[in-house]
Design a protein around this nucleic acid. Structure first.
Length: 475
RNA sequence: GGCGCGGUAGCCAAGUGGUAAGGCCGGGCUCUGCAAAAGCCCCAUGCGUCGGUUCGAUUCCGACCCGCGCCUCCA
């Protein structure tokens, strides 16, 4: 069964298939701007793209996943100058941090991760083509895209360009950039920006003088370089729909003369935090590190971020994170029972051949079908738990099929079970109390044992008895 | 104003023209010296409001109310 996905351009839910003349499914995703740590809102989008890619691979489609690194723009230049570092050194640090977080969250590495600063010649080339074809003009050393030369501009977001509200001030009430005055129309956007003193040493040669590329052009140039004139799917957060993706379409189609830039548009909804829009001023822009510091595992964060449908804004809350923790625990216990019924051990719980189309789904076929219906992750999770709670008697052979199906579905979701949680080391005084209580219990001196339990509680520790010993937990 | 998304139990969240998955929380039970954990059971005559179509609508149509996002560089 192919994966069906809603397409922003056509507003239809269509199957994702290999094109007749193609051997690989080309997928381009707008990546991070590396000027600081990515926040969980960024990661929601990247995780959703990861789930989509995994679903396609599970379906047996060969995918080429390209996700760029935006390492030359206003923010990276400003950040590097403030940090007193060369641009590439500054962005390398944040790129490494991004990769580290991605690995922790279980994201597959894209097959190609092109850097914008490493593709300046390609961007210049595309701009030159646009100028040659009359789709761009030079003004004061900058180059702008002439929107009125692109009749179908606005087709993705269905915005009628001529009705764009013109504004001479931004949302903060400040006058917009001086370069506004060099544009022929408010709708036109920069392809190349002339060097200005605040760019410091960051300047590149071009036929129009020294400067740097505009923002939108990098994705057009890099998708062309790595996926060709047209490709299968383009993804990003909803906010990129306009103007970024709209501009990409205009640039690419006008530069190559070929329509149908991307076959499918995948936009994921934004994240809210505790009912509020995420913003720096509200201090609710959480990073992975901040959540890990609060004791949550990256897997719990991943679960919480995929627990809502990708086209519905998700309200990220600590309650949701706790919910994810309980749910993962339940999944792990169920997997253990299933493994046991199949005569397997935990180390067998890996899906080495997820892309094997003949691999079994067992009772997890409905869970997979949910994913195929517009990447319905919440529906998929519901199906998994339905199996977990079912009273079906299963034979060992059926259990082995189920194990295969569960492993495949969890791989597709990118959920890794049985990860060790770092146990908090009990201080010596607490460990001493614990040992004394255990001894008292063994001696059936329950009065002393209960007293010691209360003393532990007073110190903020809980003692959990097992058959053969005990654990000390904080809180 | 334009474009778009959503309103389903205490919270989160699927879904369907034929009478509401699942998770969390809560309640009960079992087990356990206690506690915790775990397992089992229970938990929306109801799906924003009002009309319409229909044998039948939460699901289709219309209107309205409410919340949210984007509208030039935020995933």
């Amino acid at each position: 069964m192919p994966v069906f996905l809603h397409d922003t351009m056509s507003r239809e839910t269509r199957p994702l298939l290999l094109r007749p003349d193609s051997r690989v499914f080309g997928m381009y995703c707008c990546g991070p701007t590396v000027y600081g740590p990515a926040h969980i809102g960024n990661f929601r989008t990247f995780i959703l793209q990861d789930v989509l890619r995994r679903a396609l691979e599970t379906d047996g489609l060969p995918v080429k996943h390209v996700r760029n690194i935006t390492d030359v723009d206003d923010k990276t230049i400003k950040g590097s100058i403030a940090a007193g570092l060369p641009l590439t050194e500054f962005t390398r640090g944040w790129t490494n941090k991004f990769h580290h977080d991605c690995a922790a969250l279980g994201l597959l590495r894209p097959h190609v991760e092109p850097s914008a600063v490493a593709h300046i010649p390609q961007q210049v080339e595309m701009i030159r083509s646009l100028v040659d074809r009359g789709h761009a003009y030079v003004s004061a050393g900058s180059v702008y895209f002439k929107v009125c030369t692109c009749p179908d501009y606005g087709k993705l977001s269905r915005i009628d360009g001529s009705q764009l509200r013109s504004q001479s001030t931004n949302s903060a009430g400040e006058a917009n950039d001086a370069d506004e005055y060099d544009r022929e129309s408010i709708r036109d956007f920069a392809l190349w920006k002339a060097w200005s003193p605040e760019d410091g040493a960051n300047r590149w040669a071009s036929p129009w003088g020294e400067g740097r590329p505009g923002w939108h052009i990098e994705c057009s140039a890099m998708s062309l370089a790595h996926l060709g004139v047209t490709f299968d799917l383009h993804g990003g957060g909803v906010d990129l729909c306009f103007p970024h993706h709209e501009n990409e379409i205009a640039q690419s189609e006008c530069a190559t003369g070929v329509k149908g830039f991307a076959g499918h548009w995948f936009h994921s909804a934004h994240l809210m935090v505790e009912g509020d829009k995420m913003s720096k001023s509200k201090g609710n822009l959480y990073t992975l590190d901040q959540l890990v510091e609060k004791g949550f595992t990256p897997m719990e964060v991943r679960y919480a971020l995929i627990a809502g449908h990708y086209r519905t804004p998700l309200n990220f809350t600590f309650e949701g994170l706790e919910n994810a923790r309980s749910a993962i625990g339940k999944l792990e216990r169920f997997a253990d029972r299933l493994l046991q019924a199949a005569g397997f051990t935990r180390t067998d719980f890996v899906p080495p051949k997820v892309q094997e189309p003949t691999a079994a789904w067992g009772r997890f076929a409905p869970a997979w079908e949910a994913l195929c219906q517009d990447l319905n992750v919440p529906g998929c999770l519901g199906q998994i738990f339905s199996v977990a709670g079912s009273k079906d008697e299963v034979t060992p052979a059926q259990a082995r099929q189920d194990v295969c199906g569960l492993a495949r579905i969890l791989w597709t979701l990118g959920l890794t079970l049985f990860q060790e949680r770092k146990a908090e080391e009990a201080p010596p005084a607490v460990a001493e109390l614990g040992a004394r209580r255990w001894a008292a219990k063994q001696a059936k001196d329950f009065a002393t044992a209960d007293r010691l339990r209360q003393e532990l509680a007073a110190l903020g520790w809980t003692m959990v008895d097992r058959k053969d010993g005990y654990d000390l937990k904080k809180g």
